[in-house]
Design a protein around this nucleic acid. Sequence first.
DNA 1: TCCGGTAATAAACATTTGTTTCAAACGTGG
DNA 2: CCACGTTTGAAACAAATGTTTATTACCGGA
Lengths: 221, 221
Amino acid sequence: MAQNDTVTRILDTAEVLFAERGFAETSLRTITSKAKVNLAAVNYHFGSKKSLIQAVFARYLDPFTERFHGALDELERRYRGEAIPLEELLETMARSVLEVPAERNSLKVFMRLLGLAYSQAQGHLRRYIQEEYGSVFTRFTDLIRQATPELPDAERFWRLHFVLGTVIFTLSGLDALRDIAEKDYNEHVTVRDLVRRLRPVVVAAMQAPLPAPAPAGVREA
Amino acid sequence: MAQNDTVTRILDTAEVLFAERGFAETSLRTITSKAKVNLAAVNYHFGSKKSLIQAVFARYLDPFTERFHGALDELERRYRGEAIPLEELLETMARSVLEVPAERNSLKVFMRLLGLAYSQAQGHLRRYIQEEYGSVFTRFTDLIRQATPELPDAERFWRLHFVLGTVIFTLSGLDALRDIAEKDYNEHVTVRDLVRRLRPVVVAAMQAPLPAPAPAGVREA
DNA sequence: TCCGGTAATAAACATTTGTTTCAAACGTGG
DNA sequence: CCACGTTTGAAACAAATGTTTATTACCGGA
């Protein structure tokens, strides 16, 4: 199990360094020295730095998509054709996201990586994630559509990304925010705690009244 | 006005490149060649790449904080001691943010930069922004507190960051999202449009019902 | 006109980056 | 025990980065 050990050690080290500093700011030498493996091991086992980055994501997203697909199967079975309630869908998504990294106590790393995947330009990453894991997201949004028939399609699209932003932003910046919260309110906040606080906010956001119609004839660059 | 021209050209070019690719991924050579100035000009006028990054932010944040402070002064004068309504505060913040880059039609650049400032590790940037512009944020949160006396302090703290996440996440990833939205819904979305959609969602999020109390005795790693 | 400092330029600098090379060590199946 | 494919190791590679150095060009005031 020598090669497996090396591969795992590289992945374990890389994911926390990536999460802390971003991809471009993390050199292979930093990773390999901290992981106590040879520099060439990365190119030997993964081929390139880009592939290493993708492998880091795959290790989270592969189990996640599997679990999530399973959970959605179960939900659809339970509701047999009827629309699944919105809160049930959100709850299921939350549970699936939480379960995967829970096995390694690395939720904040996972969330930070997700945040980077969005913000970071890194064209190849977005393309990779989209191609590899786009289908499960499509399935989820389809179910969301059936659960919120009163929303116009475009409005639902944007609201989904609004709440996605809330969750990723909050959980990926959790450490910094937690420090402030503890200092100011003397309250130790757990992830469970945050999810509990998130729930009513997310639901309220999705069910907010529709915006006033756009004023006509206003141009913008 | 030769030196001013060079300085401005560097800033103009740097800000769009930074916004497109991030800081580490944008080299001084790319900036200077695109701006048609000499490579050494950056170090001559700004001292270092770090200082250039800070200067890019200062060019947005200095006018913003001035306008925002002014707008808050005006609000406080209008309400003379009484609590300013939440929506008025949010509206004022939105207007101040929108006004500054409007002068150069570069709102998306500004937003992307804000998003990078959060997501990007770049320790020096966070510290710089915090030290230089933290006070206006403190003033704003104080007013928000007076506008939402029904919220427990901790709850308000988290909700503020929830909606901050929504806004920054959405607007900083605007280009990518816009592409999807246009492809799927054949709808060209402007920033004004997004702000209009954001408003009811943000208000609903801040006013959502309080979460169920935390279950007692549940431990977590 | 000439001087003085400011700015622009080209070249070189020292580091750091990802990647490649090739030899040595390893381990497993015959 | 030997041979062979796999993995590790140290070193070198080319390319790219931020920064510095001299040198030249510029330009307004004495």
